[in-house]
Design a protein around this nucleic acid. Sequence first.
DNA 1: TCGTCATGTAATTTTAATAATAACATCAAA
DNA 2: TTTGATGTTATTATTAAAATTACATGACGA
Lengths: 160, 160
Amino acid sequence: MKYSTKLSDTIHLLVFLYLADGNRMTSARIAESVKTNPAYIRQLMSALKKGGLITSDRGQANPTLIRETDQITMLDIYRAVEGEKPLLHLDIHTNPECGVGVNIQLSIGDFYREVQDAAEKKMQEITLKDIIERYYEKVETAGLKAAIWADGMTDQTTLG
Amino acid sequence: MKYSTKLSDTIHLLVFLYLADGNRMTSARIAESVKTNPAYIRQLMSALKKGGLITSDRGQANPTLIRETDQITMLDIYRAVEGEKPLLHLDIHTNPECGVGVNIQLSIGDFYREVQDAAEKKMQEITLKDIIERYYEKVETAGLKAAIWADGMTDQTTLG
DNA sequence: TCGTCATGTAATTTTAATAATAACATCAAA
DNA sequence: TTTGATGTTATTATTAAAATTACATGACGA
């Protein structure tokens, strides 16, 4: 299949929202940066809304972060858009008449759980703030800071 | 897409090989338990061979584990069959003309790396031996031990 | 109030990673 | 030499995800 990029796209979306800082962002505008379509962005925002991470009102473009960026973890975002989807997948199609097969998969599942917990623990330590700070560093080292940010964040055309 | 079950299937395969203990296993036989086709099993075995985990000779059914089960980690197996495939995926399709988009994805990548490392560290702590032991526990608690294992592992018909 | 623009959401189509399958050359052993 | 197994490649089918379409609904300004 296609790989899911929901988490990446949603983080992108949230950083974008943060950087917009008050300037009302439309799903169309965000979609431009993520290079996708507005409906997909709205689907992600819908999930974020249900997850209690943003507000968004029908009819007007005014999505806003509810929590501070250091109070939003990567795990929060993952849960909002991917739910309980695991990173590793058991093969549930093994021969059910084979006691070996079934029990092996159950055993593997126990250890996948451990791997999942380790990954989620790390995801819980990473906040949106961390990612935004890292982003600023990247922009700086790329020497793009001046070009993009010189005249301030108020000029949203530079966000595109 | 479909979810990859390569890791699960390969662990299954290896446990099966271990339990067979000397009894020459064919790809067809293993495929029965995993409920897949022999060619797929051979593909996995080919990867394991390249990864230095098993031997397997053309023409005769005689695949064997090279290392002790406590010397084979889940990460070894993952590397053999999935290579460097990450658990989380960046969206590399973001608008390249958007400096924000590109740099955000790069930042996210840094943190995905941390999550990946945490997961892989845990995978490195889990050995095939651990999984086999857990498997025995499952079989016991399921009260199937007697039924399946009573007359010893020599009767490979009970493995199916 | 009406027209415009935005969101919210469901339904459908397209894309892409994976497993399934087929085909066959090669080798081993009875 | 016949049988049966592996090793490998190529093709097809499956399936989860993104892309797209469609439209009802709400906000806001002229």
